[in-house]
Every structure is written in C-alpha cells, then in structure tokens.
C-alpha cells in the first residue's frame, strides 16, 4: 500500500485536512492539551483560585511523595487491582472457553448478558451493592447465614471494605475483558487444535500448550490495562464508601480529589495527579506500542 502511494502520489490536501480536523483539534487543544500543559506547569507552583501563585520548585512533588497518606493510597490501589484483575482474567478466560463451546444462540445470550453490567454507571452499581451489603436485610448477609457465618458489616469493616468493593469492580469490568478474551480465543486457527486432537491431547493439554501461549498478548494487555484502570478507580469508592472506613478504601485518585476539594492550595493535588499521569500514562502508551508492534505477527 505504501509503495503504491509513493509512485502515484495523491495531491497534498493540507488545507482541507486541517479544515476537517479543526473541530477535533480545537476541542482537544482547549479541553485536553491545555489542561495537561497547565497541570505540568502548575505542579511547580503554590497555586490557588484566590491568590497569586508562587513558584515552589519540586516542593509539591516532595510533599506528595513524603505524604504517608498518598503512599498508602497507592499501595492500597495496587492491592485493590491485585484483587480485581486476576479474578477478572480467570473469569474472562472461563467465559471465553465456555462461549466457544456452546450453541450460537446461547453464545449470544451469554455475550449480551455479560456485557450489560459494563454499561451500567458506577453510581448505580454502587447503589446496588450498598443494598446488597446492607447489614440488616442485605442479601449478602442472608446468603452467608446459610453457611453459618454471622452477619458482617461489609462496607463498614476496615478489613472487609476493600475486598467488598472489589466485587462491584469485577462486575462492572468483566464484560469488556470477557469479550476481548473471546475475540482472542477465536483468533486461534482451528488447525492447531486439529493437530493436537489427532495426537491425542486432552483439554488441559490443549489449553496449556496451545490456547494460553497463543493468547499471551491478550493476557498481557488485559493485565496491564486492568491494573492501570483499577489503581485509578475513583467513582466507586467515592459513592460506595467515601474512602472509609478509616481510609480503608481511600484509593489514590479519591485522595487527590478530596485534597482538591478541601485544600485551598491546589499544588499538592495537581502534583500528585501529574505523578500518576507520568507513571500510568507511560505504562499505557508502552502497552499500546507493544500491541501494535506484535499484532501483525500472527
């Protein structure tokens, strides 16, 4: 394609190109790029809505990185992602294997069903799970009652709140992971399995020798994207627990947001957000490159 373009070069359409790009470029410039530049700039200032800003060098970053609350929240975010992502991967893989082996109609019912929660808002999901976790009359306590376990104060218990919050996170995110997993699974040429079956390989052998190695990229993508997304979970703790009890669900973004709301000097929040951006943005850009470069190989 590229060679063809070079020999029969299309006229350069710079003018019409920029006219058609204008709406997108203008909006991105005002609402994404400009705020980003400001973020980078303001993170070096002691800034507030009401006063002149003062240049403070790396002070904001120092404050953030030496703030135990921030460091703890990042650790908590990673722990939270560690609860959500592996569970999601196992469920998504089980789902994909299941859908690949059932009738067409059932497959489409399963696909739609598992996708629906993805479209539900975090607010509504939180409301549903607040209801499910009610101490009195909540269905979670009713269910564990059958197992002889006494009622728990799920979202109000310091030890339980984070895992309790992982459940709605898994519920909300499984759909996309499952469908991506399914697309990856169906991409494996059937002839590979044909050969394995002829050699007498069983389901486990086929899964470990063919399916999992060939789906490595899918797993890498879902793992990293899942970590990046879940460390940043923000609305869920905001609505579900407001970060409580005793900061047990205070994830980094919620901490930044609360600082922004309550703290008259915004430098801290912006520096913290900017740090998170550098780390997480770099990670996402790297997987994006990695996937684009490996995609054509198979």
């Amino acid at each position: 394609m590229r060679g063809a373009r070079r020999t029969r070069r299309a006229p350069r359409d710079t003018l019409i190109a920029f006219v058609m790009l204008a709406p997108a470029l203008v909006l991105l410039a005002i609402f994404v790029i400009w705020p980003m530049v400001q973020s980078a700039y303001l993170s070096f200032f002691d800034w507030s809505f009401y006063r002149e800003s003062v240049f403070v060098g790396f002070d904001n970053f120092r404050r953030v990185l030496t703030d135990d609350a921030f460091v703890a929240s990042v650790g908590r975010g990673l722990l939270f992602a560690l609860m959500v992502v592996p569970t999601q991967l196992v469920l998504a893989f089980a789902f994909a294997s299941l859908v690949a082996g059932v009738s067409r109609r059932l497959a489409s019912v399963l696909k739609v069903s598992v996708f629906i929660p993805t479209a539900i808002s975090t607010v509504i999901a939180s409301i549903i799970f607040i209801l499910i976790y009610q101490y009195r009359g909540g269905i979670a306590n009713w269910a564990i009652g059958f197992l002889g376990i006494e009622a728990q104060a799920w979202l109000a218990d310091v030890g339980l709140a984070l895992p309790a919050m992982a459940v709605p996170a898994i519920w909300l995110g499984l759909g996309v992971a499952a469908l991506i997993m399914l697309a990856g699974l169906l991409d494996i040429p059937a002839s590979y399995y044909e050969a394995a079956v002829l050699d007498g390989a069983g389901w486990w052998q086929r899964t470990f020798a063919i399916t999992l190695p060939l789906m490595k990229n899918t797993f890498v993508y879902l793992t990293i994207a899942g970590f990046v997304a879940n460390v940043q979970q923000f609305e869920l703790p905001l609505v579900l627990t407001k970060g409580g009890p005793q900061d047990a669900t205070m994830l980094p973004n919620l901490l930044i947001f609360s600082h922004f709301r309550d703290d008259p000097t915004v430098g801290y929040s912006i520096a913290a957000a900017f740090l998170l951006f550098i780390v997480l943005g770099t990670i996402s850009a790297l997987i994006f490159r990695f996937l684009n470069s490996t995609q054509s190989e198979d």
Partner: peptide
C-alpha cells in the same frame, strides 16, 4: 491524549 489519565487533567 488517549493516554492521559482522567485525573491528571480533571483539576486543570
């Protein structure tokens, strides 16, 4: 701009 975490630009 696709890789900017929302929080990084939310405040600004």
């Amino acid at each position: 701009t696709m890789f900017l975490p929302g929080m990084a630009i939310l405040l600004t």
